[in-house]
């Protein structure tokens, strides 16, 4: 049994969630350490995370139940089920963002420094998600004959999960070596730019892409648009800084 098989056996779903929880713990520790550098109130930021996490969990489950109302009407107790599959993660995430934004305004947390403080958490979570993809076999690559191909789902494939791990670790390193005195929002925007750029590249090697007209990969187009917005924002910040000087 090679290392990859051993890793996949140890962290086979649903145990792959351990990797994400571990990443969240490391990320929170890193973010807490950087909070004073960004002059952000740590207690308020911890409360913001707690409130948005509750928003994520509750709304993700409730919205899933509303989408499948006839099913939950037959077994109402399932609303409290421990099955993580009974969950609308995108709606939950949207509500979590709105909740975090509303709480941040109420607690007078500055937007950009708060996002900068949380950036190590986001970057570490991205690493955890990449490792969970490797464990579960999700986000797999397309068939290839490259020497470093891995045998997965009945074919030799690009190890896109490993590409994802490498890219996300490099992103975290680049974030952590930034001087915290950089302009507010720069660390967050850099994270967004690097993450979308790596997705843009890696998606081209994926074997499970959602294709749109002409065989174009939907995620690549979304990643390009996000990269454009992040680079434009960084450029705008830079110009604003020069004008002030």
């Amino acid at each position: 049994m090679n290392i990859l098989s051993l890793f996949q056996n140890v962290f086979a779903p649903p145990r792959d969630l351990i990797l994400i929880i571990l990443a969240a713990w490391v990320g929170l520790t890193l973010s807490e350490k950087r909070a004073p550098l960004h002059r952000v109130n740590l207690d308020s930021l911890s409360n913001l995370l707690l409130v948005s996490m509750i928003g994520f969990v509750v709304s993700g489950r409730v919205l899933y139940a509303l989408e499948n109302l006839s099913i939950f009407a037959q077994s109402p107790a399932s609303i409290f089920s421990l099955n993580t599959d009974l969950f609308d993660q995108w709606s939950g995430l949207a509500i979590a963002v709105v909740t975090a934004f509303a709480y941040g305004r109420r607690a007078h947390l500055p937007l950009w420094p708060s996002l900068d403080t949380l950036t190590p958490l986001f970057a570490t979570l991205a690493i955890g998600i990449a490792f969970s993809h490797l464990a579960s076999g999700l986000a797999f690559g397309k068939e290839t004959n490259v020497p470093w191909a891995i045998d997965q789902w009945g074919a030799l494939r690009h190890p896109t999960q490993i590409y994802e791990i490498i890219a996300s670790i490099l992103t975290l390193v680049l974030i952590l070596i930034q001087k915290p005195i950089a302009k507010p929002g720069f660390e967050f925007l850099l994270f967004v730019a690097l993450t979308s750029a790596s997705r843009l590249v890696i998606e081209g090697f994926r074997g499970d892409s959602t294709l749109i007209l002409g065989g174009f990969r939907a995620a690549q187009i979304a990643a390009w648009l996000i990269l454009f917005a992040a680079l434009a924002s960084i450029d705008y910040q830079k110009r604003l800084g020069h004008e002030k000087e």
């Binding site: 397309k142 789902w153 499970d208 892409s209 294709l211 002409g214 174009f216």
Partner: peptide
Amino acid sequence: GLVWIFISADRTNSATAGRIPAP
């Protein structure tokens, strides 16, 4: 990025699964 999107487009839908058996 735009060039890569064009190059890596999957015009034959070969990247999608379904043709081979796998769990």
